[in-house]
């Protein structure tokens, strides 16, 4: 590791861990800004997926960043910083949703007791080829649970097993709901744009 971290203020080309070490040592505002600007937009996008409201997502981004910086001393560097940041983000959002008692609404009944027959849903398929404005319209018309699931999987790239852990369900149930959500989205797209989606 270069000695930039300990001797100078942080530089944009530095790795996350170097910046963290420098920040811990000197509390330099440049280090804070670099880390903040590297992750804030991604945190906002993930929080928006979960909370579905821009103002709430902005508040969550603030809370999450404050939490991360106050606990920076606990970051041991064994996992990637980004992994730690995203896990703090999702845990924060899930806690917030649970406090507001929206969890049933969000990760709901369709997930209960499904047979283990869902196919692996690794590709967004035709949905990935839509225009962004079309995708936004389709997502807006989907039920909350389906929209969140599609965004978690295809926008944020969260693995199915991680989504399953997040909502305390099994992987097959998640795959099945994902499959149904995609079917609904395609149907909505077909109805709205009079296209021949199958």
């Amino acid at each position: 590791m270069s000695s930039h971290a300990t001797r100078y203020a942080c530089l944009p080309e530095m790795e996350d861990l170097e910046i963290i070490l420098a920040y811990r040592e000197r509390r330099h505002s440049t280090c804070f800004r670099l880390l903040h600007d590297r992750y804030a937009a991604r945190i906002f996008s993930k929080a928006l997926t979960m909370l579905r409201d821009e103002t709430q997502a902005q508040d969550a981004t603030q809370e999450i960043f404050t939490k991360i910086f106050l606990n920076l001393g606990k970051f041991a560097g064994t996992a990637k910083f980004s992994t730690w940041v995203y896990s703090v983000t999702y845990n924060f959002c899930i806690d917030k949703i649970r406090k507001e008692k929206r969890s049933r609404e969000l990760f709901a009944d369709e997930l209960e007791n499904l047979p283990d027959r869902a196919a692996e849903e690794d590709h967004a398929g035709e949905l990935a080829n839509l225009q962004v404005s079309e995708l936004r319209n389709v997502l807006a018309k989907l039920p909350d649970a389906d929209r969140t699931l599609l965004l978690l999987k295809y926008k944020d790239g969260v693995k199915i097993k991680d989504i399953a852990l997040m909502v305390s369900k099994n992987e097959s149930a998640i795959k099945m709901q994902l499959k149904r959500a995609k079917e609904k989205a395609k149907r909505i797209y077909g109805e709205q744009y009079n296209s021949s989606t199958t």
Partner: peptide, 21 residues
């Protein structure tokens, strides 16, 4: 398109909200 949507959200955040946060 999902990744484009993510990029748009992030760009919107950087433009309008990042400094405040």
């Amino acid at each position: 398109s999902f990744l484009q949507l993510r990029d748009l959200e992030m760009a919107e955040f950087v433009k309008n909200r990042q400094d405040t946060v």
